[in-house]
């Protein structure tokens, strides 16, 4: 049982994360201040929500690189619409609209993937360019700093604030609740609903899933629409926290998010991955990119270190699998004494 626990990628990533925290915290105690932790939570929120979406797609045996384009499209378009109608209400409406736009764009992915059975990478590469191009050309490319009031106030929506020893007030932003909520929903969905199991079944063996009678078109439509909703919400959080709507933002992060998800144990070949692992993968990458500066590693080195961690983190399980495969389970009798 213990052995099984230790052979899991989640456990490895968790241990690495704890070790890394201890190391950084020992070198620079600032790491342990609430301010740093609130900052980490804030940074992990958008990546985390994206990563949950990526997880679901990866488990189903697909890959999606268009979610960043969906996120920026939904966020920017929502901002433009709300500005034009002079919307004065709260942030909830922004999230609802952005999520709806995201769902719509996700359905475009689903249409090509489920209906025509095109390879998911090709479809989402295409739609990424399409969504982004459409956004920049048709909707707008200027940075909007003059935000509708609901959105402008969002960056100050803390759950609570603390004032530390030096008199600086820091707060935990409420956006982290989205991450928690999305994680719980995804966990319930993947683990405890037949729809979730059909996603694993599809990623494990498409043919077997068809023979079993799963409605795979429905499953795939759900997956890409759901990812669209998550992207719409994450994009809105991103815009709110940064207090601007920039049509050039977000796109470009997709590979980092996919890498964090894979680091957390999701298989690029489909059928495997967990919410807990994904969250750990995201946290590990976030701690690395936010905290290396605390131990004196220049920020230009961050990319190198993150790249190395991702390579090592994904290579270790692969090497172990290869090793197990090579060591056939032959039970060799002891050599009798001569």
């Amino acid at each position: 049982m213990l052995k099984k626990l230790f052979s899991r990628q989640e456990t490895l990533v968790g241990i690495t994360l704890v070790a890394l925290c201890l190391l950084i915290g020992t070198i620079n105690p600032v790491f342990w201040t609430p301010g740093n932790w609130f900052d980490l939570a804030r940074s992990a929120t958008v990546t985390g929500i994206f990563a949950i979406g990526v997880l679901i797609v990866l488990v189903s045996g697909g890959i999606d690189v268009s979610f960043t384009a969906i996120a920026v499209f939904s966020m920017y378009t929502t901002t433009v619409i709300m500005n034009q109608i002079g919307f004065q209400g709260g942030m909830v409406a922004f999230f609802a609209l952005s999520a709806a736009i995201g769902a719509l764009l996700g359905l475009i992915n689903a249409f090509f993937i489920a209906r025509f059975r095109l390879p998911t990478l090709i479809v989402t590469l295409g739609t990424q360019s399409l969504f982004r191009g459409f956004l920049l050309f048709v909707i707008g490319s200027k940075i909007i700093r003059d935000l509708p009031p609901g959105m402008a106030q969002y960056s100050g929506a803390f759950l609570f604030t603390v004032t530390d020893a030096r008199g600086i007030t820091v707060g935990l932003h409420s956006a982290v609740l989205f991450l928690v909520g999305v994680a719980i929903i995804a966990q319930l969905l993947l683990r405890h609903t037949m729809l979730g199991r059909s996603i694993y079944a599809l990623g494990g063996s498409r043919e077997a899933a068809e023979r079993a009678g799963f409605n795979l078109v429905r499953t795939q439509v759900f997956i890409y629409a759901f990812v669209g909703v998550l992207a719409g919400i994450a994009g809105m959080i991103y815009g709110g926290l940064n207090r601007q709507a920039n049509a050039q933002d977000i796109v470009g992060q997709e590979l980092d998010v996919i890498a964090a998800t894979v680091l957390g144990g999701a298989s690029i070949a489909g059928g495997r991955g967990s919410v807990v692992g994904t969250l750990l993968g995201v946290l590990l990458v976030t701690v690395m990119s936010n905290s290396l500066i605390l131990v004196g590693i220049p920020s230009i080195w961050q990319r190198v270190v993150i790249g190395a961690i991702i390579l090592i983190g994904t290579a270790v399980p692969a090497i172990r699998a290869l090793h197990t495969a090579r060591r056939a389970n032959v039970d060799i009798e002891p050599v009798p004494a001569e």
Binding site: Y200, G204, E207, G270, G271, R272
Partner: peptide
């Protein structure tokens, strides 16, 4: 039961 069993290897 087909020759390839139609099982899900990941489950």
């Amino acid at each position: 039961i087909y020759q390839d069993f139609s099982l899900f290897p990941n489950l």
